[in-house]
Simulated assay, not measured.
Amino acid sequence: MPLLSRGAFEQFEATPSGPAADEYGLTGRHPFTVLREVTRGLQPVPLKFAASAEERGIALTRLVLTMGSRVMLRRVADASTPLHILCWSWDLSGEPPLVHPAPDADPARWQVPLRGDERRLDEGPLELVPPRRIVGSQSVRIILWQSDRGADPATVTGEVREALRHSRLASTLATLSPDARATMMTAVGVREAAGELGREIAPVLRALCTDYVDFFEGFYPVVDDVVRSDRLAGFHSELSLRM
């Protein structure tokens, strides 16, 4: 369960078709929560997910951890133990989940420097999700981790990438077609698989990291009014994102 969160998977919108849509007069886009309830007794229900007209990405613009965050990361103020950022993201396009930092990224850019008695990253945006056309809803998850066992950031990220590749979420997303057509049961399957993902990745992080925290999870559905920025604060920390 992430410490900070924004939105929920169920907020994405889709256009139904078939007998269920005809019977209930469902025209145009509707939230997943509405579609799930009104079509509960009628399956399958074909869906077409909403898609963004333009490319969208997500960048981390500010991250602050105060001394109080030692309750989450015991070595948050230890200058000899770097604090690393790892994230994964996915949408409903049928593409596999993305894991960052990428293999060719500069590891130093994905560390949160110690400035005085705080961990602070605010020197320019860090690209979490590369700009692309989003289908349904963009999900992004941020993990913060430390290791005094000499764990290499590339190894940690690579192991998480491999675990994601074999996850139930990845296999469920792979069933979505390139034109973003699916059924209500497919969407339910994605939601359930996404809920299991944290438990699937946890053994990898426990094996490699001395401390880690499931820091943030955000869901940003495709809607007409685009969210341009987001700021969250709590648990002795602050997070700002730019879309």
Rank of each mutant, 00 (worst) to 15 (best):
115 R>W: 04
117 D>L: 15
117 D>F: 14
117 D>Q: 15
119 R>I: 03
119 R>D: 06
122 D>R: 14
123 E>Q: 15
124 G>C: 08
124 G>T: 10
126 L>W: 03
127 E>F: 00
128 L>K: 01
129 V>C: 11
129 V>G: 05
130 P>R: 14
131 P>V: 09
133 R>K: 12
137 S>L: 11
140 V>R: 04
144 L>A: 07
144 L>K: 05
144 L>E: 04
146 Q>P: 06
146 Q>K: 11
147 S>L: 03
150 G>V: 06
152 D>M: 06
152 D>K: 07
152 D>P: 00
153 P>G: 07
153 P>A: 08
157 T>N: 05
157 T>V: 14
161 R>I: 01
162 E>S: 09
162 E>C: 00
165 R>G: 15
166 H>F: 08
167 S>M: 11
170 A>N: 12
171 S>H: 15
172 T>K: 14
172 T>V: 09
172 T>N: 01
172 T>E: 14
174 A>Q: 08
176 L>E: 01
176 L>F: 10
176 L>C: 06
177 S>R: 15
177 S>E: 11
177 S>C: 01
178 P>M: 08
179 D>L: 03
180 A>L: 02
180 A>W: 03
181 R>M: 05
183 T>D: 14
184 M>I: 14
185 M>P: 00
185 M>S: 12
185 M>H: 03
186 T>A: 06
187 A>Q: 06
187 A>P: 05
187 A>Y: 07
187 A>K: 09
188 V>F: 11
190 V>R: 12
190 V>Y: 11
191 R>W: 03
192 E>L: 13
194 A>E: 15
196 E>G: 00
199 R>V: 04
199 R>D: 13
199 R>L: 07
200 E>V: 01
201 I>R: 03
203 P>K: 09
204 V>Y: 03
209 C>A: 13
210 T>N: 01
211 D>S: 07
211 D>C: 05
212 Y>I: 01
213 V>F: 04
214 D>Y: 04
218 G>Y: 07
218 G>F: 08
219 F>K: 03
220 Y>F: 15
225 D>M: 08
225 D>V: 12
226 V>A: 15
228 R>G: 05
228 R>T: 12
229 S>N: 11
230 D>F: 09
231 R>W: 05
232 L>W: 10
232 L>Y: 12
